[in-house]
Design a binder for these strands. Structure first.
Lengths: 412, 412
DNA sequence: CTCACTTTGTGCCAAGTCGAAACAAAATAG
DNA sequence: CTATTTTGTTTCGACTTGGCACAAAGTGAG
C-alpha cells in the first residue's frame, strides 16, 4: 500500500504536522482569524502556516473564507479568514444536576449546535440517569446527522483522576465513589455512539465548576488570564476552580478548590460538615431569600428568585442589607483564596455573579480590604459571560484530544 | 564560515538536538543513569539516545563511565553509567537573610562545589549587601577556576515576576519594591562574572521558600510528587510554596502561598498584619521557647535553640505541651491549605521539620482531622532532606536555561 | 570453554518536516 | 498606471529522526 513516492510528488500537506494542534487550538479559542496571524502566533513560516490551514480544511475542521474582506486602513494583500466549519464534527456534552440534565452537541469554538434538557425529579441509579442523558445525546446526533468525536460529562461532585469516580455526589444522592466515568462510557457503548469505524468515542467526566472554569477561560470572561480563579454557586453549593496557564488544576485527587467549606463567619449557621459559617451555607440562595425576608416560592429555582430579587428590588433596604452581608462574606472567602493563590482574575458564576452585578464596587473593596497585599488584592473580578458554560466546558474535555493531535483523533 | 557539508560527512552528533534538554534534565534529577534509560524515558531510538549522550559529553556536562558495572542478575550487555561531570561548569547560588548571607558554586544535580558564608549584622543598602555577596561568589569562582553559567539569588521576600522586584523584604529592612533582580545583575556585571566571551551571566532572583521547594522537589524529599506543597519557617517567618507538575506556582505577581498570615488561632496573639493568631506568630521559634518557659539565649539562633529543645527535652511536660500546641496550629494551617490545594505530598522545613520529627503522628492526625475530605487529608507529610536546599534552589533557577536548551546556553 | 541468548551501542539510509528564498497574487497609496 | 505592502504558494535544501543491520559485551546452559 505504501508506494514509494519520489521527491517531486510531495505536496504542501506534508508539512506543519507538529503545529497542527496548536493551530487548531488558536482557531478554537478564536484567536487565529487568518493565516497571517497563524504565522506570527506559531512562529513558523508562511509556507507552514498555509500548509496547516490546508490540512485543517481537508480534515473538515475549518473553512477558508475567500470573500474579499472589508478591512479599512490596512495595506497589502488581505488575508482570508479562517472560520470554524459550521458543518464540521461535534462532541457530545452533558450535564447532570439534582433537578435534571442537559445534553448538547458542541462544535469547535464552544458553539452549541443542538441542545436538549430533561427533568429527573427523584434521585435514581447512576446508570439509569446517564442512560437517559446519553439517549438524549444519541437522539440529537441522529437528528442532526453530525459526526461525533467524543463525549464529556459534567457532574456536581469532585471527580478523582484518573479513575473517574465521583467522590462526593451528594446533590445527586449517589453513593460516594461511584465510577461515573465507567458508567458513562458503558452508556455510550450501549447507545452506539461511535466513530465511523464503529469504535465508541472517548468519554470524559469532570466536576461541573471545573468545567465551567475551563469554558470561561477559553471562550468567556476568563480569556487571556494566566491564573484564573473561578467561584460559582450552582445547583450544588459553592464550588471553585483554578486554571493555571490554560490548564485546570484539580489537585492530586480531584479535590482542589472544594471551597464550599471555607469559614467566612465564625458566628454563622451550622453546616453539615460540622463547622459553622461555611461559604456553602452563608452564601446561598435560600439563606439570601430568608435574610431578605422573602418566602421562597416553589415555582422557579431559588437561584432565579434570588437573581430577580437582586435585579429588581435592590433599592429595598432589607434586600440590600441581606445582599451586602452576603457580599461581605463572599469577599472574605475570595480574599482568603487570593492570599493563597494570587490569581490575576476572578470569574464568578451563579448567585455570586448576580451579587457582583448588584454592587460591583463593594465586592472588590471587601476583597482588597481582606487580602493581605494591596497588589494581589486588586484582582479584577468579573461575572460569567458564556451561555451554558458548564456544557461548553464538558465539551472542552472531549475536544482536548482533537486539539492535542487532530490527525490521530480524526483518523480513528 | 559555514562550509557546505556534503551528506556523507554527517556525524552522530547531528541528531538528538530536540531531546538534549529533556535528557540533561533526567541526568540532573538523577533519574537517567544510563543510555538505555534515556532511550525509554525520552521515547527515542537507541541511536538518538547515544547521540544525545555523546553531545552532552562533548559539551562537558556529563561523563560516561566505561568501567564494567557490577550489576547482579541482569542479562545482556551492561550499559555504561552517565555521570554528571564533577569538573563541569557551575552556577553561582546565593542567599541573603537578616543575619547574613551564603554564596556557593553549585554543579549539575544540585551538587555544592564550594560555599562561603558571611555575616551582616546591620541592615544595609541592597546594592552594598549584594555587592558583598557577589564578591564572595567571584572569589569562589576565582579560587576554583570553574566556568560559571549563571547566577541565582534567594531572598526572604515575595518577588514580582517578571520585574524582579522584592515586594515585602521586611526581614532585610529593605524598602518594598526594591529592584533586587536589577541590583543583582549590576553587581554581577561589576564583578565581571562572565562567560568566556565576556558577556555577564544571566541572573535570577526568587523567594527563598519557593526555591527551597524547587530544590526539594528536584533533589530532595519532594522528588516524584506531582502537586507538592512546601511550608517552612526560616529566618523570616512562615512561607509556603507550591510545585505543580515540576513547575513553581508563584501566582500572578509572586504572592501565591504567602501563608504566614493564615489565621490558626482566633484568640491568638496579635500580629503586625492587624489580625490575631496568624501562623507567622503562632508557629514561631520565639513563641515556642516562651511557651516552653525558656529564656531565649543570644548565642545561637532561635531556630537552633528550638530544635535542640524539641530534640533533647521533649519528655519535659512543659516543652511537650508547648510543642503540641504548635503542632495543632500548624496542622490547622496545613489542613486549610490541603482543602484548597489538594497536594499529594507536603514537605516541611525549618521549625516545622523539627516539630514533625518530635511527633509525626500527631501532625498527620491533626491535618487529617481538620481537612474536609478523608482522602485528601491523608497527605504524606515529610521533612526536608537536602542540605542548603535554598541555595540549591537558587542554583536551579540559574540552571534552568541550560536544562531547557543546553546548546544555546553553552554556546554563549 | 563454547554456544546460544539478551541487551546495549553505532553506522547507514530513507522519510518526514521545516526554513529560506523566489515568485505570484491582491490589495492600497500616490 | 505604477510602486509598495502584505499575503499565499512553490521549490529546494538542510536537518532530524526512526528503522534496520550489525557489532559489542555481558549471562547462562551444557
Amino acid at each position: 500500500m505504501t508506494q514509494t513516492r519520489t521527491t517531486q510528488t510531495r505536496t504542501k500537506l506534508e508539512r506543519g504536522r507538529s503545529a497542527l494542534g496548536p493551530a487548531l487550538t488558536l482557531v478554537h479559542t478564536g484567536s487565529a482569524p487568518t493565516r497571517a496571524v497563524l504565522t506570527t502566533e506559531l512562529g513558523v513560516t508562511r509556507a507552514t502556516a498555509g500548509a496547516v490551514a490546508a490540512e485543517l480544511q481537508v480534515l473538515g475542521l475549518i473553512r477558508v473564507d475567500t470573500r474579499p474582506t472589508v478591512v479599512a486602513g490596512s495595506q497589502g494583500r488581505p488575508s482570508h479568514r479562517l472560520d470554524i466549519n459550521p458543518d464540521g464534527p461535534v462532541v457530545l456534552a452533558a450535564q447532570v444536576h439534582a433537578d435534571g440534565f442537559r445534553a448538547a452537541l458542541v462544535g469547535l469554538g464552544g458553539r452549541i449546535v443542538a441542545t436538549r434538557a430533561g427533568c429527573m425529579t427523584v434521585a435514581a441509579d447512576p446508570a439509569d440517569v446517564l442512560g437517559v442523558v446519553v439517549a438524549a445525546g444519541a437522539e440529537l446526533l441522529k437528528t442532526t446527522g453530525r459526526r461525533c468525536l467524543g463525549a464529556g460529562l459534567a457532574v456536581p461532585s469532585a471527580v478523582a483522576e484518573p479513575e473517574g469516580t465521583a467522590l462526593n455526589p451528594l446533590h445527586l444522592a449517589w453513593p460516594a465513589g461511584v465510577p461515573v466515568s465507567q458508567v458513562f462510557a458503558e452508556r455510550i457503548l450501549a447507545h452506539g455512539i461511535t466513530n465511523p469505524d464503529g469504535v465508541p468515542v472517548a468519554s470524559f467526566v469532570g466536576n461541573d465548576v471545573n468545567l465551567t472554569a475551563l469554558a470561561e477561560h477559553r471562550h468567556g470572561a476568563g480569556r487571556g488570564a494566566r491564573h484564573l480563579l473561578v467561584v460559582a454557586t450552582g445547583h450544588s453549593g459553592v464550588g471553585g476552580a483554578l486554571v493555571l496557564d490554560g490548564r485546570l488544576h484539580t489537585g492530586s485527587s480531584g479535590l482542589a478548590l472544594e471551597v464550599g467549606h471555607l469559614t467566612v463567619n465564625s458566628e454563622g449557621r451550622p453546616c453539615h460538615c460540622g463547622e459553622r459559617g461555611c461559604l456553602d451555607v452563608e452564601v446561598d440562595p435560600l439563606a439570601f431569600l430568608q435574610a431578605a425576608g422573602r418566602e421562597p416560592g416553589p415555582e422557579v429555582s431559588l437561584l432565579h428568585q434570588s437573581a430577580a430579587l437582586l435585579r429588581e428590588e435592590y433599592a429595598d433596604p432589607t434586600v440590600r442589607a441581606a445582599a451586602e452581608a452576603l457580599i461581605d462574606r463572599l469577599g472574605l472567602g475570595l480574599a482568603r483564596l487570593v492570599n493563597v493563590l494570587n490569581p490575576d482574575r476572578i470569574v464568578l458564576g451563579g448567585l455570586h455573579c448576580h451579587l457582583l452585578d448588584a454592587d460591583p464596587e463593594r465586592l472588590s473593596a471587601v476583597v482588597a480590604d481582606r487580602s493581605l497585599w494591596g497588589r494581589s488584592g486588586s484582582v479584577p473580578i468579573v461575572g460569567c459571560t458564556l451561555d451554558h458554560n458548564t456544557l461548553v466546558g464538558a465539551a472542552e474535555l472531549a475536544w482536548q484530544p482533537v486539539l492535542d493531535d487532530p490527525l490521530s483523533a480524526l483518523a480513528a
